[in-house]
Amino acid sequence: MKKGVSIILLLILLWGVVAALSEMPFGKAKLEVAGHYTDYGKEDTGAANIVTSVVLGYRGFDTLGEVTVLFLACIGLAVVLSTLKKQGCGARQTPSLILNTGFRFLFPLILLFGTYVFMHGHLSPGGGFQGGAVIASGFVLMYLSVPKIKRLNHFVSTLFESVGGLIFLVIGLIGLKLGSQYFLNNFLPNGEFNTLLSAGIIPVIYIAIGFKVGSELSKIIDVLLEESE
């Protein structure tokens, strides 16, 4: 009964979507707004990666919301699990020697790679979110391979989270006060195209986001693991 009703609903959805898709063939040419971004994105924001120039330049306000959502998820997770009595998730197997040694070798490399990814967000694929996620996956590896779980330092992670978000906002507010009166306006010089120190405020914001996302995603894992001490 339930399955039948849901299949009928899904078929109606499919029928509607197919009707709508007939207006938008796959692989057609870009429309006005996207064309503007690819044509002028280079001059407007100074980033070689047009996706970055859209994410932090044209649609930077979305990214502020996105950063807020992640911050929110971290807080919400802590709220949901905070009133719970501390309880371990059962006995852990001792990690094997290979895992442990591999971790020691890989962990610095993963952190380095994550840092590279978010530093070069305006030049190559990647950015604050991807770099932060890479760093967080390094911490997941740490939880897997270190026999006695080392808890994340909550003071440091709180500091990273808050300060990272605040840097983003403060840069936005500086843009509002300085020169032209626009929130998130790019007030730093664009610099030489396709070099590390270019694209104005974009690398600064991406570094802040990278630290913030890295510490937030690791904290989500950490809060979920919550072993009894």
Partner: peptide, 9 residues
């Protein structure tokens, strides 16, 4: 960009 985000996240 998205491929990286999807693979890591």
């Amino acid at each position: 960009d998205v491929a990286m985000a999807e693979a890591s996240i």
